[in-house]
Each structure stands twice: as C-alpha cells, then as structure tokens.
Amino acid sequence: MVATGVGWDVHRLVPDRPLIVGGVTIPNELGLEGHSDADVLTHAVIDALLGAAGLGDIGEHFPDTDEYWSGANSLDLLRSTRELVVVGGVEIAHVDATVMLERPKLLPHKEAMRANLAGALELPVARVNVKATRGEGMGFVGRVEGAAALAIATLQRPED
C-alpha cells in the first residue's frame, strides 16, 4: 500500500538568528525565528512523513513548549522522525519539497539541502527533491517577513 502525507511550515525572518534551510546555514542578515533552529524545509518534511504514517504532526512529537527541544537541530528531529515512521517494513519512497523565500537565492544551496535531507532519511539523493521559489514581492514571503515550505512524502507500506 502507498501512503502520502503533506507537510507545511512557516517561520518569521528576524535579525540575530541564523538562516538554516535544509540543514544548510546560509549567510544572510536575517534568520528564521523558532523554538528549534527553525529550519522551515526540514519541518515541512517531518510533517509530511508523520502525515503519511498517520502519526500526527511535528508539534505533538517535538513541542515548542518543551525546553528539551529549544535550539534543536532539525536534522536530528528528522532522523528521529524517520525512526518513528520506518517500522514494520515501511519504506520512505520519495520526498518532494518546495521552499518559498524571497532572498537570498537558494539555488547555490539546493544540492546540499537535498543531500542533508537524504542523509538524515537514509535515502539515495535521487529519492529526495528540493525546489525553491520566491514570492515575487507579494505576501509575507515577498515582503521578506518570513519563509514557508511545503513537502510531500510517499511511504510504501507492506500489504496488510
């Protein structure tokens, strides 16, 4: 059986925070605000995986009300999520994600993001895709107020 999940995340851009996307620290005057490292891309992938597995959402597993997760590396959270999802023969078939960020341009960093996500998921890079787009000056992304990401994960489950 095939199961698919969708993940969505947003974070505000603020000064004095690193900009971490897909586990890559990108030089920029603004970074993403959040309880953990606020890696919007990785958070969307986590939610997509949890959704495909029927395991709730990121806030249930890594709540921002728990100081234990303060400043957490989101790739570590992704590794933990993989362990929750891949039980009983379930296999992660594919992950596809889009990051929405007005600037800086993410093209130079996309392959490193893809490699980081694939590594944390123990997948070949060919089974993880990362795209990037801008807000074209519209909405909170276009006004450089924040970033968003959308991810879709496909799991292959053993037949019941």
Rank of each mutant, 00 (worst) to 15 (best):
A3V: 10
T4Y: 12
T4V: 13
D9P: 13
V10S: 15
V10W: 13
R12A: 10
L13N: 03
V14E: 00
V14L: 01
P15Y: 12
D16P: 02
R17L: 12
R17Y: 09
P18V: 01
P18Y: 02
P18R: 04
L19A: 02
V21F: 06
G22E: 09
G23N: 04
V24T: 09
V24Y: 06
V24Q: 12
T25G: 04
E29N: 12
E29H: 09
L30I: 05
L30G: 02
G31D: 01
G31I: 01
L32K: 06
E33H: 14
E33D: 15
H35N: 11
H35G: 05
S36F: 06
S36M: 06
S36E: 14
S36A: 12
D37T: 06
A38D: 10
D39F: 06
D39M: 05
D39N: 00
L41G: 04
T42E: 03
T42C: 03
H43N: 15
A44V: 09
V45M: 11
V45Q: 11
I46A: 05
D47E: 10
A48H: 01
A48Q: 08
L49K: 01
L50E: 00
L50W: 04
A53K: 04
G54T: 05
G54D: 10
L55P: 06
I58H: 02
H61C: 11
P63D: 11
P63E: 11
D64K: 12
D66S: 09
E67R: 13
Y68A: 03
Y68P: 01
G71A: 08
A72Q: 02
N73F: 03
S74H: 02
S74Y: 03
L75E: 00
D76H: 06
D76R: 04
L78Y: 04
L78P: 01
T81M: 03
E83F: 05
E83Q: 04
V85S: 07
V86Y: 03
G89A: 05
V90C: 03
A93Q: 10
D96R: 13
D96T: 11
A97H: 00
T98G: 11
V99P: 03
V99F: 07
L101D: 08
E102A: 06
R103Y: 15
P104S: 02
P108S: 12
P108H: 13
P108E: 14
H109C: 13
K110G: 08
E111L: 11
E111Y: 08
E111K: 14
A112I: 08
A112M: 10
M113S: 00
R114Y: 07
N116M: 01
N116H: 05
N116K: 06
N116T: 03
L117K: 02
A118I: 03
A118N: 13
A118G: 10
G119Q: 07
P124C: 12
P124T: 15
V128R: 00
N129W: 09
N129M: 14
V130D: 00
K131S: 15
T133W: 02
T133Y: 05
G135T: 07
G135C: 05
G135V: 00
M138Y: 11
M138E: 14
F140D: 09
F140W: 12
V141D: 09
G142N: 13
R143V: 10
V144P: 01
E145Y: 15
G146Y: 04
G146C: 07
A147H: 11
A148K: 00
A151E: 07
I152H: 13
I152C: 12
A153D: 09
T154L: 15
T154G: 09
L155V: 07
P158K: 01
E159V: 12
D160W: 14
